[in-house]
């Protein structure tokens, strides 16, 4: 047995090795960062250009459409000039980009207020909703998915499984604004537990956040369960069991990270669709956020305001996607190498 006692590694050699490994590591991460940043920039450019082109894609005269058929011709001309729509397209584009860099998003046609101001005023309410709903759905979905996987593994707990998947399919199929309407009916109209609409105290957050979170939570927990079930059959889980670790350690330390990396890609999609879902839910709850702004500005054809809100939503989604990719890379380093 003598040959198997721990032998000290010379410290100098250890340091040298660690240094080289570190170089390799940072190199790989640098490449990942560059590639991902490049993708973000391209997407941003597409977004900005699309929102610039939006006003030009509207058939007919957008300013006339916005001001209505009764507006005097001089006013329409003046507004058109204000918006810079008489300039050649390239100059408009350059001006648009320049304004963006300075943080200026133009002036609303209907209210004459700077678009940036309106957005700054309304964004926090929307962001709070989205973040709260995302956290709630992840915090509920991951444990529920894991527990369900453990309970219903390998044909155990057939009834629990049926109840879980059944509830899940139904909940996942109900769109968030309908959940909102249902919640209002049950918890505000019938029982007066929570306010029907508006944003006031903490209790006014409960229904909109629930309405937003329930659908994603159902979808995510189903995926976490399926991924856990698949991962639990993997060879490396058998290895972990052969090491005689406790079932909890096998499930949480060995299975969960692998299940989560697979679920996370979808989680990111969920989060960005959640951002968009706020539009509908805000309208159900008369929530003073960006969602009601974008709808009313589309209806009133207030194009600068639409441009600004679309940009903000788009940037939010892109940032979320990037964040998800970074987290994914941290959790599963193969993805950073696999791409290159």
């Amino acid at each position: 047995m003598g040959g198997w006692t721990p032998a000290a590694v010379p410290p100098s050699a250890a340091r040298g090795l660690r240094g080289r490994a570190g170089d390799l590591w940072s190199h790989r991460w640098l490449r990942f960062a560059l590639r991902r940043a490049g993708r973000l920039l391209v997407s941003l450019w597409v977004l900005v250009t699309a929102s610039f082109l939006m006003i030009h894609l509207v058939p007919g005269d957008p300013v006339r459409a916005a001001l209505g058929p009764t507006a005097p011709a001089e006013l329409v001309l003046a507004r058109t000039r204000d918006l810079g729509l008489l300039d050649p397209l390239w100059r408009q584009y350059a001006g648009f980009l320049g304004n963006l860099l300075r943080g200026e998003l133009g002036v609303s046609i209907s209210t004459r207020l700077p678009v940036g101001e309106t957005i700054a005023q309304r964004l926090p309410a929307t962001a709070q909703l989205a973040v709260a709903a995302f956290l709630l759905s992840v915090l509920v979905a991951v444990p529920v998915g894991v527990v369900m996987a453990v309970i219903t593994r390998r044909g155990k707990g057939r009834r629990t499984e049926l109840a879980f998947t059944g509830t899940n399919v139904v909940l996942g199929a109900i769109p968030d604004f309908l959940v909102g309407v249902g919640l209002v009916y049950l918890l505000a109209v019938q029982t007066h537990l929570f306010p029907v609409a508006g944003r006031a105290g903490p209790d006014s957050y409960v229904l909109p956040v629930l309405a937003l979170a329930i659908g994603p939570c159902a979808v995510l927990s189903r995926i976490v369960r399926v991924e856990m079930l698949a991962v639990m059959e993997a060879d490396y889980i058998r290895t972990a069991r052969a090491k005689r670790l406790t079932p909890w350690r096998v499930q949480l330390v060995h299975a969960l990270p692998n299940a989560v990396t697979a679920s996370l890609t979808l989680g990111g999609l969920l989060l960005s669709s959640l951002v968009a879902g706020t539009v509908l839910v805000e309208n159900v709850f008369a929530w003073p956020g960006l969602g009601s702004t974008i709808v009313s500005s589309i209806v009133s054809k207030d194009y600068p305001l639409v441009q600004g809100t679309v940009l903000i939503y788009g940037v939010g989604v892109l940032l979320i996607n990037t964040l998800v990719d970074v987290v994914l890379a941290l959790l599963d380093p193969r993805s950073t190498i696999g791409e290159s």
Partner: peptide, 25 residues
């Protein structure tokens, strides 16, 4: 392919709203 990849990253509802602006209510 890359254009599709960029577009897929945006949630459907956002694209819908964008096109709703263009095509009108």
């Amino acid at each position: 392919t890359s254009a599709v990849n960029v577009l897929v990253a945006f949630p459907g509802l956002l694209l819908v709203l964008f096109f709703a602006v263009v095509f009108g209510v």
